[in-house]
Write a protein that binds this DNA or RNA. Structure first.
Lengths: 120, 120
DNA sequence: CGGGATCCCTTCGGATACTG
DNA sequence: CAGTATCCGAAGGGATCCCG
């Protein structure tokens, strides 16, 4: 259950010769917060403030930058409700939701492997 | 085949409340090159120069930094062969090899999702 | 409330030169 | 060959102030 089978390994081996889908995934999941934003939205659409609070309050600028990036890549949508005060809701697209497979793999790995003595 | 099932989703939902294994995985797979290094070594131990060439020749300093980081986290081992010229071989530990599940998920996702019109 | 505009500091990562 | 040492520019990300 830990590692993948021989077939998948061969698949990975082959991938390294090509442009490699891994690099594409890394491009999308770039930056310190991106992955966590996606994780947050997997449970449903959320407002700017909700996302911010859930992640440990990164700076507004940083969060805005990341959200814009994901929006441009069609990972999520941004909806502004013309109210006072304004309400902005972010929701994953189908494209973004499909990232759940990657996040799930990360979650499983992280849980099964406690941090080693040293880091960095 | 795209997304995960309802059970796994619920699992992810729960995870966001906790410290979250995802963050641990992100800590390990930090930086621009780390993930690619692991991918490279999944096919077997390799020398410094081999890794460098395979990744598109990052600077020696950068690669050294990443390799040291992974070594400290017990993701890989570094073996120096006392020869002239020296030969240094990097190999994944069992711990490192187990990351293949994560890399595999990334590979699949990247292949199934061509880059959107815009990036960043 | 959800930003936009600035300013600023830290970190990442590349370039170059040198060494065991 | 596989580094180490040093310098450096670019980008990431935080803090603060202001606005619709």
């Amino acid at each position: 259950m830990e590692t993948i089978g021989p077939d998948e390994l061969k698949y990975l081996a082959n991938a390294q010769s090509t442009g490699c889908g891994i690099e594409r995934t890394l491009t999308v999941l770039d930056g310190k917060w991106t992955t966590l934003i996606v994780r947050e939205l997997l449970t449903g659409p959320k407002r700017f403030g909700e996302i911010r609070a859930a992640l440990g309050t990164p700076s507004a600028k940083t969060l805005t930058d990341r959200l814009r990036s994901l929006e441009h890549q069609a990972i999520l949508t941004r909806t502004v409700h013309a109210e006072v005060p304004p309400r902005v809701v972010y929701a994953l697209t189908e494209h973004g939701t499909s990232l759940s497979s990657v996040l799930h793999a990360m979650l499983i790995w992280g849980e099964q492997h406690p941090l080693p003595p040293e880091r960095r």
